[in-house]
């Protein structure tokens, strides 16, 4: 016990460098996003006003504060483009996450039923695609989904369709891409809870007369809820802000919010509006983020 306490103090000192790093490069930047979201757009380099100028003392700071405005947020609320982008992102994330859960659960469940020595192999097989470049995996789907791509060829050969179907630049393609990219994130936490589960509970259920299906619904499923929550959040939150997948696979007639932000920033060079979009997105995601932080902390720190 005493050893533990002696160890604790130098271990706490280990926090100093990463703590300062994250304060400087993760937390502080949000302050700048907030500040710029409250400033006016300008055709300048960098393209926003006002800039705090400490050299001019207190008066300048006061003037700068006076110049802050909520115009960008009013714009977001009044223009359908932005509201629809947020809605579309939430809907796409909801649909994709549901499909991910529906596909991921049976796979994770099957993995947890594998003989013990095969489980690490299956686990590696799930992780490997996650290590392979994300961009490459989306690109692989462009290959498959294009007009004369493999999917159309196979479907034509099987006489499922008589003319090639347009897959690329549709919402279907985008959802396929999202599900494909995020599947490992769904499987891993599900598998982690399912593999830990005490199989004697199921034996008890069947001894007491439950059918296998009933035992699943009454025992396995409720016990896997923490895994479901972790998997759902791990997918849902980043999908809402996804940029690359909708950009490469979906059509251009309606945008997800990540694309809108990108467009405002890189194409329109409207940094204040882009910042305002980011702030609103952050507020929308705050609740799921906090729940996720809690789950993660319980998972990593609760097992001692």
């Amino acid at each position: 016990m005493s050893g533990r306490r002696i160890f604790a103090s130098p271990a706490r000192r280990a926090a100093i460098a990463p703590y300062l790093w994250m304060l400087l490069f993760f937390l502080l930047p949000f302050g700048f996003v907030l500040k710029i979201s409250l400033s006016h757009t300008a055709i300048a380099q960098p393209p926003y006003l006002p800039v705090f100028d400490l050299a001019h003392g207190f008066a300048a700071i006061k003037a700068a504060f006076a110049a802050l405005s909520l115009d960008n947020f009013r714009l977001l609320a009044s223009d359908d483009l932005y509201v629809l982008s947020y809605l579309r992102s939430l809907v796409v994330a909801l649909i994709s996450t549901s499909i991910l859960l529906a596909i991921g659960y049976p796979i994770a469940y099957g993995m947890s039923r594998l003989p013990a020595r095969w489980q690490p192999v299956a686990m590696t097989l799930v992780i490997v695609p996650f290590w392979t470049s994300f961009l490459i995996r989306i690109y692989a789907w462009i290959n498959i989904l294009q007009h004369d791509g493999l999917l159309n060829k196979v479907l034509l050969a099987l006489h499922v369709i008589s003319v090639p179907v347009v897959w690329l630049s549709t919402d279907t393609a985008m959802v396929i891409g999202i599900v494909y990219s995020y599947l490992p994130f769904m499987i891993l936490p599900l598998y982690a809870t399912l593999a830990k589960m005490d199989s004697t509970l199921l034996e008890a259920a069947s001894d007491l007369g439950s059918s296998r299906l009933k035992a699943f619904w009454l025992v396995t499923f409720p016990l896997s809820l923490p895994g479901i929550a972790a998997g759902v959040l791990l997918c849902f939150i980043p999908i809402v802000g996804e940029f690359v997948i909708p950009d490469l696979l979906a059509g251009s007639n309606s945008l997800m919010i990540g694309q809108t932000l990108w467009l405002e920033f890189f194409t329109n060079r409207d940094w204040p509006v882009a910042s305002a979009i980011a702030i609103v997105l952050l507020v929308l995601l705050l609740a799921p983020l906090l729940i996720y932080d809690r789950l993660q902390r319980r998972q990593l720190e609760g097992r001692r």
Partner: peptide, 23 residues
Amino acid sequence: FSGMLYAPLVMPEVITGLSLLLL
């Protein structure tokens, strides 16, 4: 501290990227 370490794992990249650039 732990919040700052876990949040970037799920934070949409457009937000992280934009905020770092502004810094």
